[in-house]
Amino acid sequence: MSKVEEAKKQKRNKKKKRLLFRSIILLALLAALIFALISNFNNDEASLGVGDQAPPFQLKQLNGDAETLNLADLEGKGIMLNFWATYCKPCEDEMPYMQSLYPKYKDDIEIVAVSVDATQLVIDRFVDNYNLTFPILHDNKEQVMDLYNVGPLPTTYFINPDGEIVEVVSGPLTLERLDGYLQQILPE
């Protein structure tokens, strides 16, 4: 190779390197910019979402025979996990729907209603009033509510038998919609 050719080759290499270097830096900066913009718009709390594994917990059960309920014990069943409170009106509205569908799905799906009320008394009165038979849990220290990062009440998680969250519903449910979601988490 002659010297001229060598110099030319060197020059071409340099140019290539320069282009590569600049492209990489610009791309990295562009990526950072896009990341910042997207993050700014999805400013919501990093709550649990569809596709996440439902984190396990154990809480005191206020009705039925059991003293406590551990979510891990329900493996193999679909779980409807409902966060509610006695003072929350929309929560109260959807309770009868849950109670009416409970016997139908009982063997395949467990409806778990976690109350975030402060005192047991108000929950007991509420449960008696509506004759609720599905497990009512009491999260008096808001531990589970914090774990699931629940915002407004009611919030309902539909968890499939593999423990994966299939649907998150914020706000009250109608009977039809509730039925539809329960169908989704039936075991195969």
């Binding site: 006695t86 003072y87 009106k89 975030v116 009320d117 402060a118 005192t119 008394l121 108000v122 009165r125």
Partner: peptide
């Protein structure tokens, strides 16, 4: 105690609690 309303108010003629506090 038949009923306990921690944060009592009247809603449509019905006694209710506004919050849990």
């Amino acid at each position: 105690i038949d009923q306990y309303f921690p944060d009592y108010y009247i809603d449509d003629g019905e006694p209710r609690s506004q919050t849990k506090n």
